[in-house]
């Protein structure tokens, strides 16, 4: 399933604008610990987190993650959005918590 379909189906907010809407999502990983994501997430997965600082983009880029969803309506810093657009990593937001949004994405992808 591509990222734009997931954005539509789950009503996610687009926090960054420059990315490929056709980007395929093949799974997800939910964590707020950066080393946990470095160690255990896989390429093409969507990362669900409450972290909003710029370093999440470096992690997503190095791991070639497909997108980042920031939960609980937390807002990313301005330099996080800039980094996301530079790396063309979709930075998305939701009012839901990590449990709900992870469950919804799990159901969409299974």
């Amino acid at each position: 399933m591509n990222i734009i379909t997931i954005i539509d189906k789950l009503g996610l907010t687009q926090l960054s604008e420059i990315f490929n809407p056709e980007q395929e999502i093949n799974g997800g990983y939910t964590s707020d610990l950066l080393s946990d994501v470095m160690g255990n997430a896989s390429e093409g997965e969507v990362w669900i987190t409450m972290q909003t600082h710029k370093n999440i983009i470096a992690v997503a880029s190095l791991k070639e993650l497909a997108a980042i969803i920031i939960v609980n309506n937390h807002k990313p810093e301005k330099d996080t959005i800039e980094a996301a657009e530079k790396e063309q990593i979709p930075l998305l937001g939701t009012n839901n918590g990590a449990f709900e949004i992870s469950g919804e994405i799990y159901n969409l992808l299974k």
């Binding site: 610990l33 950066l34 080393s35 946990d36 470095m38 160690g39 987190t49 972290q51 370093n55 999440i56």
Partner: peptide
């Protein structure tokens, strides 16, 4: 910030 988990 999500660092310092002792996983590095």
């Amino acid at each position: 910030m999500g660092f310092g988990a002792g996983m590095g």
